Simulated assay, not measured.
Amino acid sequence: MFDFDTVFSDLFVRDGRLWMIGPPFANLEPELRSSTFKWNKLDVSADIEFENLNRMSRASVPVDASNGLLEIDGPLGSWKVEVDELWDGLFRGSNLLVTQQKNNRLEWIAYWAFYNAQVNGVDSVVVYDNCSENYTAEKIDQILARIPGIQNHVVVKWDTPYGATGGPHNVWDSDFGQHISWEHARRAFADSAASCCVIDIDELPFCIDGSPLAEKLANSEKAAMFFNRQPIRQFPNRKDELRPSPRTHADFSLGEARGAWLAPKYIYAPARLPNQAQLLVHVIRDLGVQNEPEKEVRAGHFDSIRIRWRRGEKRQVENFESEDQIKEPVETVSVLDNNFDRLVPQWKELEARLKPFFEQQV
């Protein structure tokens, strides 16, 4: 079992359906299937649809009320849970940005949201905060509320464990937490959005022609657009040494000369996505078409906007002191340079307003 405790990470009602989303049922599936599920005292067990997906599972059932009492009784135990409907108007028609994170610096989160609002047409954000220790989830909420262009946002206090990472043999088959988050975001928040981009805090997408990513997807007929990531190395070639300020993505624009070769991330149009499709980290399963990366879209993957939590580290990655320390051939990524230059005046003003929040983190 995933963490020996979690059967469902969350339960909610959307559009007349009760969703129960969590880690793989695994050896608990027979017991769950033999349990009695009651919704407002009505036995709905026969109508429950159990689905086993890649590194996560979901169960759902049509319901005739937007909120009520769910009772589960069976071999695993007995539970009573009050379940409510999630309001579907918050992100209707929005261009949504979704991530899961823990302990990233608040200035990184701020710049990530700010950049995507100004460059990629994002107007809404959902952050799954995976039990950060350096600040509260409320601090992220306060930061996002002050980002120009972000009209709506939600910070989810997400205590579902991330799961095991790839290990020494790079076998990624037990990182359940992120897969559960993406499915939860799709069903709970993104279903009425115009677009949803799923990326990490250390990643900034950009279109080679300068157009907003959300607009490029909207003008296509695709259900999703995939883009490879280009490593941006940790020498701060853009840093203004005369103006001390917290490190952000905008300090770096030296990308590996071989271009965008890291596994892709994506943006998708919820209304175009097949219901059976599943959002994985780098691909969308059962999309119906190949997950081919776009040639004219990529993302910078910033080495310095990172804490090596997989190694148990708590401090941000140290910058190189000179460009000579970079082992790989690098070149300036001109599109990032241009985007960063354009955003400097507005970011300086925003940074000053957010400074009191930055100073409160550990």
Results as ranks from 00 to 15, higher is better:
Asp3Leu: 14
Phe8Ile: 08
Asp15Lys: 14
Asp15Leu: 12
Met20Arg: 05
Phe25Met: 09
Phe25Tyr: 13
Asn27Gly: 13
Trp39Val: 09
Ser45Met: 09
Ala46Ser: 14
Glu49Leu: 11
Asn52His: 11
Pro62Val: 09
Leu70Asp: 00
Gly74Gln: 11
Leu76Ala: 14
Trp79Ala: 15
Asp88Ile: 14
Gly89Trp: 03
Arg92Cys: 07
Leu96Gln: 08
Gln101Phe: 03
Ala110Phe: 05
Asn116Ala: 09
Thr136Arg: 12
Gly149Tyr: 10
Lys157Leu: 12
Lys157Thr: 12
Trp158Arg: 01
Asp159Ala: 15
Thr160Leu: 09
Tyr162Asp: 12
Pro168Tyr: 09
Asn170Ser: 07
Val171His: 12
Ser174Tyr: 08
Trp182Ile: 01
Glu183His: 04
Ala188Ile: 02
Ala190Val: 01
Ser195Met: 00
Cys197Gln: 00
Cys197Gly: 02
Cys197Met: 12
Glu203Ser: 04
Phe206Cys: 07
Cys207Ala: 15
Ile208Thr: 11
Gly210Met: 06
Ser211Asn: 09
Ala224Ser: 06
Pro236Gly: 05
Glu241Tyr: 06
Arg243Val: 09
Thr248Arg: 02
Ala257Lys: 14
Leu262Met: 13
Tyr268Asn: 11
Gln276Ala: 14
Ala277Ile: 11
Leu279Lys: 07
Leu279Arg: 07
Leu279Asp: 07
Leu280Pro: 06
His282Met: 10
Glu292Thr: 15
Ala299Asp: 03
Ala299Tyr: 04
Asp303Asn: 10
Asp303Ile: 07
Ile305Gln: 02
Ile305Glu: 05
Arg311Phe: 09
Glu321Ala: 10
Glu323Lys: 14
Leu343Tyr: 03
Leu343Cys: 02
Gln346Ala: 15
Trp347Gly: 08
